[in-house]
Structure formats: C-alpha cells, structure tokens
Design a protein around this nucleic acid. Structure first.
Lengths: 139, 139
DNA sequence: GTAACTGCAAAATATTTGCATCCTT
DNA sequence: AAGGATGCAAATATTTTGCAGTTAC
C-alpha cells in the first residue's frame, strides 16, 4: 500500500489532497523542511493557512516532529515509527550543514544521556549540531 | 568595576543606557530571555527596534548566545567567559521547564560528544532538554 | 448526512529598513 | 567633530482566527 496513505490512515486522519502532497514532500525529502520550503515546493498551491494547520496536525499525530533552530523558524522532519500520537521520541541528533544549509536527521545517532543536577527531571531532549555534512565535505 | 560596564567596554561597544539596561537584565536573570521578556521587563521603554539591534550586537560580540527552541522564538542567555567575538562555545545543556517555563543554562552539564557517521564534521553543538526543573519538582 | 478540512479575508504579531536626530567617545 | 546608536515611520513578513463553502467517509 502507498506509504503516504498508510501513514495518514494509521493516524486516523482523513486523506485529502493537501495532506498527501505535504506528506509526500517529507517522504521524498532527505532533510528537514521549514514552512517556507513547503509552500514553495508543492505543485498545487495551498493556502498558507492550510500549510500551518497541516503541519500542526502532523505534529500532533506523531507524523512529523519539530527541530529547534536559532532563527525564528521551526524545522519539521518525518518521525520514525516509534513516534506515537502526542508522544515524540526523537532522541536522535539533527545536523545542520553550514555549507548547503540542509538539516539532516541522523537517525542512528542517539542523543546521549547526560547527568543532571539534583532535582532536574528531564523528559525530552533534542540535540542540534552544526558543521559540514558528508556531501559538502567532498568539495 | 561594574560588571556591566566591564563587559561592554571589553567588547569595544559604546556604553549606552539601552545596552546597560538590557545587559543588566541578563546578568540579574537566572535563565534565558526571549525578546518579549526584554521588552516587558525593562523599566525604560525602548523602541522594539532597539531591542532587536541590541540583541544582535550582543550576539555578534559574544556577550550572549542564542538557544534554539521549537516555538518560533529565540531565547538568549549570557555567555560565559570563554565566548569570544564571533565564536561561541556554549556547549552546555539548556533546560526548559515545562512547568515554570523558565530556561536554565546548566553550565556544568557539558554536551557530550557523540560519534558521527563518516564524513560529518561537527563544529558546534547545542542540546536542549525539556522537563521539570529543581524548583518546580518541589511542588 | 455529518464531521472534518480548506480557502478567503482580516486581524494580530513579529521583523526589517531607511532616515533624521541624538549621544558617546 | 565623527561615528555610532536610537527612535520613528513604514514596509515586510509571519502567524492566528472566524466563518462559509467544500470534501472525505
């Protein structure tokens, strides 16, 4: 079965053209996407608002997750299977290339656990690393 | 000598009322501040634009650093001594409390180094952890 | 048929830029 | 005095909300 459909159905979301298109974009894309990328890369032109709402729905349903950035934008990337509705377990490292500016989910690099001071109870961690990615290092 | 003045002078910045006030806010505050916090917590009312420009100047001069978030804002926090102009070395963990919503720099918790796949060259890392802070856990 | 999704309009919010004026050194 | 910093105005950009019309199931 079509992967896109599969994901939407599994989350109990109704299948609409917009959701299919946006979800496809994530599946095809290697890296993470910002709101703006989505607006400019979809063939059909959606209303800005639809993109906002779709992203929000996807996040709430554990289909995509947010990646923190330091530039007033949010990046989104596909979740792996273990993400369920409401609960995100994206404890992998995100790599932002200073050169090509892509953000790549290093799914195999798990965020190491660290020791917190007395009284701090961590629930969720995110790690973002900047540097040069494996594609750009060749040039 | 006054710490605020000291920091500004060391960076070669001219000492103005706005910069003193904003820098003071950072020094007094335990956690990280968002643009909005600054606007609402300064006695003198600055122009929004001045706040933007001041924050930018401080970041460029290694006085404060940005903390990535997933909510379309940027948090700022004072740098420690080792940050120099242009180069930030804030490899410590940032803790965001889900309860009081404060962001705390855990200066003593260093971001652990992780092993990257072949070809990835990390230059800078940031780690943001959400959970319950030591103050809120008591309640 | 009903509930959910979308588009449009508009409001609210956030950020950037240019320029004249004022302040720091 | 000169260069830099600020305030104001205005242009841009971003995000949110309400509502009416449309679509998926």
């Amino acid at each position: 079965m079509n992967q896109t459909l599969d994901i939407l159905k599994r989350s109990g979301l109704s299948v609409t053209e917009g959701r299919r298109e946006i979800l496809n974009l994530f599946i095809q894309s290697e890296g993470a996407l910002a709101h703006a990328d989505i607006e400019s890369n979809t063939k059909i032109s959606f209303d800005r608002v639809t993109v906002y709402r779709t992203l929000q729905t996807f996040v709430e349903n554990g289909i995509i997750h947010q990646i923190p950035t330091t530039d007033n934008t949010i990046l989104y990337a596909l979740c792996k299977d273990k993400c369920g509705s409401g609960h995100h377990h994206d404890e992998h490292v995100h790599f932002i290339c200073n050169d090509c500016e892509k953000t790549i989910c290093l799914d195999d690099v798990i965020v190491p656990s660290v020791k917190f001071p007395e009284g701090f109870h961590p629930l969720q961690s995110a790690m973002v690393v900047k540097g040069i990615c494996s594609d750009c290092i060749k040039n």
